[in-house]
Nucleic acid binder design. Structure first.
Lengths: 154, 154
DNA sequence: CCTGAAAAGTTGACAACATGAACCTTTTAT
DNA sequence: ATAAAAGGTTCATGTTGTCAACTTTTCAGG
């Protein structure tokens, strides 16, 4: 295990970084599957669950939803259509700017979202392998990673 | 900081766990977006890139691909169709069992996959916030989480 | 005031992904 | 030899995603 010097122009990623990326990819895949499953168990798709989760803090304009999820506004139209037709959200025009449609979760929607969130906390297998102290360390590391990047606050 | 005793039947998730789950969800979203972007930059979809990544270790039957990605075999048919039509993979019958179709990456396919993997290592913004020691700690934690769960080995 | 540019959402066409049922081929068991 | 089972594919259907064109509302100049 000789430490190889970073060569000239290419920022050669060290072994640790490479492995962390791989592990992360696996964890992301696992997380993603479980999220989809948990959503499906409540007859929601992943995308619908994500939108519903965004509305936990209050109503939000279509455009902002699209920006937060990094997709086209026209895509959100369809997702909200389906959520609305099932009574999970409502659409109403903003008083200040009538171009804006504020999407708000109904009680049913909030309940479904909260329930899903709770189920995630419990079903999350991977975390079971870590003790309290380790979770704290993990939390701090994740915090650093997220605030350093595109941290949307809170 | 009083340690609250686990109450009776409900495994009340502590604050730390809850926050870790939330952070994880954000990180997963970020990772996912970047993966899709990196794949799109090589005119691959996320699903296609995932399949191609699976073939890094050698040819694999359709069914096994489906199982690994937790989806229906019929879904893989389409994805492999598109990869094949672009020369990224080949399909050939297994000698032992001619029902089985072995999907193998072509040179072009392997190159694209490797390139994407490399680009991930470098583009991974969140990791930039962590120093070498912290990455090591993170790696160990992630390892524990994955081997404890449904670790498919390495 | 009025006209035109810009912003927010929606619509329509289209491709990819995902599922489930029905089907064909090959293997395996009886 | 025949039936059951396993691996893939096909078809129908629904959701997600993009892009371009369009409507409505707001805002900026003249």
């Amino acid at each position: 295990m000789d430490t190889q010097p970073a060569q000239d122009a290419t920022p050669q990623p060290d072994e640790i970084t490479r492995e962390v990326v791989d592990l992360m990819a696996n964890l992301v895949a696992l997380f993603h599957r479980e999220y989809e499953e948990a959503a499906a168990a409540r007859s929601l798709t992943g995308a619908q669950a994500k939108v519903l989760a965004l509305l936990r803090r209050g109503p939000m304009p279509m455009r902002q939803i699209a920006q937060t999820l990094s997709c086209e506004p026209s895509n959100i139209t369809g997702i909200v259509d389906r959520l609305e037709s099932r009574g999970f959200v409502t659409r109403e025009a903003d008083r200040q700017d009538r171009r804006v449609k504020l999407v708000a979760a109904t009680d049913t929607g909030s309940a479904a979202s909260a329930e899903l969130r709770e189920s995630l906390n419990f079903a999350r297998e991977p975390l079971a392998a870590l003790g309290p102290d380790e979770r704290t360390v993990l939390r701090d590391l994740l915090r650093r990673m997220l605030t350093g990047a595109a941290g949307p606050g809170a």
